[in-house]
């Protein structure tokens, strides 16, 4: 097996706040092979978004963040890259769909201006007309009905789901080799969500894109991902192929998580015991899904 697209080893993160040090990630390791769709699911606040931000190199810019561990992208040690080169990867070879689309878009520029900037990162010579054409095509791909109007609008004039699709279209525009998708479907209705998932899957198949897929929607994870990591309080607690995880969850936290999913068949909102005993139990790796086996 060739070098994985992304390999994270023993990643630790803390924040130095006035009240003292807050540990957020306690040494997590994960990898994503070429063309693999890997989901990261878990508690809110467990450190999913920060992991993605570290990969992009964004958290490194925060002065309170203390980061250690190794990050490897397509065989390159990211920490050895010059800041300029690393910055250049963003939006070109790795791109991210941010969790909060409305505030990730700049409120003072119309969508087109921002879209053009994204396209110009990969192709600085791109002209106005060409950028517009590409942007329209990209928006149509994410089932936006009136791409022209959307391009001339400001983020606050669009619905949450439209902004999210704009973000998705921007993230996919330059055919990245790694896509970090942080809750890409939260504001979309299920039919459009299915469509964007299909779009991402196509990208995976055509360009061998690797996807880190962060989501709270376990149903989507089950349909989209090849493999799943479950994270709880800054620790990976279970890793398995999607099939293994949903048919045979082992870790107490994963079990609790799966039992909390409301069912379309009804039955009320699950009553979750407050009991969190066992949630901090050590990592359970299903056969065939552990780091060592896959990378050996």
């Amino acid at each position: 097996m060739s070098a994985p697209t992304l390999k994270i080893e023993n990643l630790k993160l803390g924040f130095k706040l006035w009240s003292g040090m807050v540990e957020v990630l306690h040494g997590i390791s994960l990898h994503i092979g070429k063309g693999e769709r890997v989901a990261l699911v878990g508690e809110s606040g467990s450190g999913k978004s920060v992991t993605a931000r570290i990969v992009l190199g964004m958290l490194q810019e925060i002065s309170t963040a203390r980061i250690s561990g190794s990050l490897n992208f397509e065989g390159i040690d990211l920490d050895k890259l010059k800041p300029r080169d690393r910055h250049h990867l963003r939006g070109t070879r790795m791109s991210m769909i941010f969790q909060d689309p409305t505030s990730s878009l700049n409120p003072v520029y119309p969508i087109f201006t921002q879209f053009r900037e994204v396209l110009a990162r990969a192709n600085p010579a791109i002209g106005e007309a060409e950028a517009r054409m590409k942007a329209i095509a990209a928006l149509a791909d994410v089932s936006i009905n009136e791409p022209e109007r959307v391009l001339d609008s400001y983020a606050f004039q669009l619905s949450g789901g439209m902004n999210q699709r704009v973000m998705i279209a921007m993230a996919l525009a330059n055919n990245p080799s790694l896509l970090l998708a942080d809750e890409p479907g939260t504001a979309l209705d299920v039919t459009v969500q299915a469509q964007t998932l299909k779009l991402m899957s196509d990208l995976v198949e055509q360009h061998g894109t690797s996807v880190l897929f962060i989501s709270h929607n376990l149903g989507v994870v089950r349909e989209f991902a090849d493999r799943v990591y479950v994270i709880y309080k800054g620790r990976i607690v279970e890793q398995a192929t999607t099939k293994q995880l949903f048919s045979d969850p082992q870790h107490p936290y994963t079990r609790a998580l799966l039992s909390a999913v409301p069912r379309i068949t009804g039955g009320g909102i699950p009553d979750i015991a407050e009991d969190t005993a066992g949630f901090l139990d050590p990592l359970i790796a299903h056969p065939g899904a552990s780091e060592k086996e896959r990378l050996a």
């Binding site: 809110s44 969790q99 939260t186 504001a187 709270h216 999913v261 409301p262 909102i269 009553d271």
Partner: peptide
């Protein structure tokens, strides 16, 4: 307006029960 779309299912279940 989509009050739980950012929550994990455990917290979501708790918030929904709270709302109920």
């Amino acid at each position: 307006d989509e009050p739980t779309s950012a929550l994990d299912v455990l917290v979501q279940a708790r918030v929904l029960r709270l709302l109920a």
